[in-house]
């Protein structure tokens, strides 16, 4: 990947919005995000907003005993047609790049789950025979406990597109508190939606060849987004599969290592936040946040 020097992320001194990502799934994004949010709220006595943007598999709420929940539907706009005005000219179908429209004789079939809500069909229709209606694709929930406000999205099972749900979660807060985003795995559109515009990203990796491979991919994406990155190595042990060497080469700081420990794994399985398993971890996480504020999070490509 040749990145121009102009795209090299610059140091940002005040990190308010932090996105926790990993590339590989199951490295400990949620453990870290929830632990960090709880530890910060506890130590600094400030409110913290936690956004669970892993909307295909949201899990942060399992870690928190939330009070009353606020729920609402998340919808996208999809076209409907009026047969009275339609002349079956096919302009809408030609304008749709996502295969969401098909014309059978003079009947227009709309495959709403393929629709990307771009509005091209409406624009193309010379008869104004199309209009848009909301279609539910998931739901948004909010709850608060001990200074942490959790907002999470859940994509309805059977719905393919997670991005509109992620965007709804990101838009659901105007808080001027620290915002911690529990991101989705992978490196494609869901990750872009969650990490774009964050002040920094914390990449949680594990010392395996899988972790190393996916860390490389996720650092490439963060470079493209110009989001500075720092790394946490979870399940750390003596062998590190080249993680530290990669981070050194790319100028990305490793800010914390969480060793592999059977007790941590067992309590983690019970969805106990890291700071509650051992308060020493809470203190480490607050230190991690402080280091992010002062440290040069990097992301330079060698």
């Amino acid at each position: 990947m040749g990145m121009s020097a102009a795209l090299t992320p610059t140091v940002r001194s005040n990190i308010v919005k932090l996105c926790v990502v990993s590339g590989k799934g199951g490295t400990g994004k949620t453990t870290l995000s929830v632990g960090l949010a709880c530890a910060l709220a506890e130590a600094q006595g400030t409110a913290v907003t936690l956004l669970d943007c892993d909307v295909e598999e949201p899990n942060a709420h399992l870690y928190l005993q939330l009070g009353t929940l606020v729920k609402r539907e998340i919808s996208v706009l999809v076209p409907v047609w009026d047969p009275k005005d339609c002349t079956a000219c096919g302009a809408c179908k030609r304008a749709c790049d996502f295969g969401a429209l098909a014309l059978f004789g003079d009947h227009l079939e709309i495959f709403a789950e393929h629709c990307h809500s771009c509005g091209a069909c409406l624009y193309a229709c010379p008869q104004q025979a199309l209009m848009e209606v909301p279609r539910s694709v998931g739901r948004l929930q909010k709850g608060t406990v001990a200074g942490v406000e959790l907002i999470w999205g859940e994509l309805t099972v059977g719905e393919p597109r997670s991005v509109p749900v992620i965007e709804a979660v990101l838009e659901a807060t105007q808080a001027d508190t620290p915002v911690i985003i529990d991101g989705p795995p992978g490196t494609s559109c869901a990750l872009i939606a969650a990490a774009d515009g964050a002040d920094a990203a914390l990449v949680v990796t594990e010392p395996t060849l899988f972790g190393l491979h996916d860390l490389t991919a996720v650092l490439d994406v963060l470079d493209t987004l110009e989001v500075p990155a720092a790394v946490v190595i979870n399940k750390a042990n003596d062998e590190d599969s080249g993680i530290r060497a990669l981070c050194r080469a790319r100028g990305v700081p490793v800010l914390l290592e969480i060793p592999f420990d059977r007790q941590l794994a067992e309590r983690g399985a019970e969805a106990v936040p890291l700071n509650r398993i051992d308060p020493a971890w809470g203190a480490q996480l607050v230190r991690l946040w402080e280091m992010l504020q002062s440290h040069e999070a990097g992301g330079k490509t060698p």
Partner: peptide, 20 residues
Amino acid sequence: AEPSASGLHDLCRLLDLAAH
């Protein structure tokens, strides 16, 4: 499946999808 609160939650969603 993974034996954890998260693993169980996500397994249910996956099995719902397979049923779908």
